[in-house]
Amino acid sequence: MSRRPIALSSDLLRLQNEGYDIDIRDGFLIVRNVPFVTSTCSIERATLISPLSLSGDVTEKPDKHVCYWTGAHPCHADGAKIRSIENGAGPQDLAPGLHAAFTFSAKADYRDYHHKMTTYIGRIAGEAAKLDPTATARIFPAIAAEPEESVFQYVDTATSRAGIGAINSKVAGQKIGIAGLGGTGSYILDLVAKSSVAEIHPFDGDVFSQHNAFRAPGAASLHELKDGMLKVDRFAGIYSRLHRGIKPHAFFLDETNVGALAGLDFVFVCMDVGPAKRAVIDYLVANGISFVEVGMGVTVDDGRLGGIVRATVSTPKTRDLAVPHISYADDTSGANEYASNIQIAELNALNAALAVIQWKKLATIYRDSRQSVYLGYSIASGEIITEGPDGAG
């Protein structure tokens, strides 16, 4: 059944965020996995059920104080039945496949369904906790999401628990491109896949090789490396477990195929090769598409690595400010040690985080008092240099 009432009702959402295994079925609110004490003083689990009053997809104040129970009669820690919630009604079928063994009655003026269900659970599961302090109904189950309700395969409880759903939804519906799935691009995919964008289009024609494994999210197995999978196929397979909108493109972008970027709302440019990068950026500029261009300049000095990690934001309003910070030099020339695949995953991850934060600032998810066009992180000093409409800072 649709989980919209849970998403739209603060009391049901609170139950879910607190880890209760809840569902809605045939006009009933169901809480599974409630621990209780049996007459033999063992602990089992059963389901607590309440009639549910809705106005559209939003809960109203409970109009019935009764609840139903699917298991054996719950007992106190000493095995004596909990008589205070007994009701004389016998077993009954509430809906197809939904059978109640007992009806309970704990009369109160319940504010909402969180108040009602936690009151009942406290009386029942509280006795189980006396025997086993780890016995709890708050099990934090994995919750699948329906395709028509979410771009995610399962419910984003991190956002709902933090109460920032309206803020994070500002990127909902966007189609995002990632030009290049090297070290930085793969981390960008990791971060963007955890947002509510509609589609993510990674572009890369390369194979996922052994050196890639040391500067990409996660841990590739030796078997995966021997398979010689394309980067886009490997990462699409991984992140499609989370996000439904991964659309891989198994080719390198250049002047012959930049039209594949048509229709995208934002692009992360994570490319090394100068002419191809120029073709991509020229296309984005000509078509009014905003982007972040990322890169590193890593050098070896006295046996230590130094240099800059940078991100440049270009929107139709900031094109002129962005131009001086975008390099079209061919980084495979050998002057930049980054091109030799030094294993610097932490710099890739930082580069990706800076880029994604800038994108989310443009979407007004994050506050942006400076509106920086350029960010450069100095490895040696640890300083972040920014440049915006008002100059460097």
Rank of each mutant, 00 (worst) to 15 (best):
Pro133Ser: 10
Thr134Phe: 13
Ser221Gly: 09
Ala220Glu: 03
Asp206Leu: 07
Ser55Phe: 06
Ile289Asn: 09
Ala125Trp: 06
Ala279Arg: 13
His249Ser: 11
Cys270Leu: 05
Gly288Phe: 00
Glu346Thr: 11
Ala142Ser: 09
Gly126Ser: 07
Gln153His: 12
Arg14Val: 10
Ala166Lys: 11
Arg310Tyr: 14
Asp330Met: 07
Ala129Ser: 15
Tyr366Trp: 10
Ala349Phe: 00
Ala236Glu: 00
Gly79Pro: 01
Ile357Ser: 14
Ser10His: 14
Leu350Tyr: 05
Ala95Arg: 08
Gly306Gln: 01
Asn87Leu: 09
Arg304His: 06
Asp156Met: 13
Ile49Leu: 14
Leu52Thr: 01
Ala145Tyr: 05
Ser9Phe: 08
Arg278Asn: 10
Ile384Asn: 06
Leu362Ile: 14
Gly297Val: 04
Ile30Met: 07
Ala166Leu: 11
Gly228Ala: 07
Pro91Ile: 00
Phe203Glu: 02
Arg4Ser: 10
Gly97Met: 01
Pro324Ala: 01
Thr136Val: 04
Thr386Val: 02
Met296Asn: 14
Ile384Phe: 12
Asp368Phe: 02
Gly183Met: 02
Glu293Gln: 08
Leu305Gln: 02
Ile176Glu: 05
Asn257Ile: 06
Arg304Trp: 01
Pro324Tyr: 00
Asn33Trp: 02
Ala135Trp: 09
Ile30Glu: 06
Ser42Asn: 11
Tyr239Lys: 10
Ala95Ser: 12
Ser50Gln: 01
Pro217Trp: 12
Ala352Tyr: 02
Gly163Arg: 08
Ala279Thr: 12
Ala198His: 12
Thr47Ser: 11
Thr136Met: 09
Arg45Trp: 07
Cys67Gln: 04
Gly27Gln: 11
Ser169Thr: 02
Ala172Leu: 03
Gly393Ala: 14
Gly303Pro: 06
Leu8Ser: 10
Gly306Asn: 02
Asp390Arg: 15
Leu350Glu: 10
Lys361Ile: 05
Ile188Cys: 11
Ala322Arg: 00
Asp112Thr: 07
Asn341Thr: 12
His115Ala: 13
Val207Leu: 08
Ser333Gly: 15
Val294Ser: 05
Ala128Leu: 06
Val300Thr: 05
Ala172Gln: 10
Ile164Cys: 11
Arg310Ser: 12
Ala349Ser: 13
Tyr374Cys: 04
Ile200His: 08
Gly388Trp: 06
Gly97Tyr: 00
Ala355Lys: 04
Glu199Ile: 12
Gln92Tyr: 01
Arg319Gly: 01
His211Asp: 13
Ala77Thr: 04
Leu321Lys: 06
Arg241Met: 09
Tyr239Pro: 00
Gly393His: 14
Gly245Lys: 07
Arg278Gln: 15
Leu305Tyr: 06
Ser150Ala: 14
Asp233Arg: 12
Gly259His: 03
Gln358Ser: 09
Asp11Gln: 05
Ile246Phe: 01
Val66Pro: 00
Arg234Asn: 03
Ala345Thr: 01
Val267Glu: 11
Lys64Trp: 07
Ser10Arg: 15
Ile167Lys: 11
Ala193Gln: 07
Gly71Glu: 05
Arg304Gln: 04
Tyr154Asn: 10
Ala262Gln: 06
Arg4Pro: 00
Val298Ala: 12
Asp368Asn: 09
Ile24Arg: 02
Leu230Val: 00
Arg83Ser: 13
Leu15Thr: 09
Pro248Ala: 03
Ala72Phe: 07
Arg4Thr: 10
Ile24Thr: 06
Ala135Asp: 08
Ala89Cys: 05
Val171Thr: 14
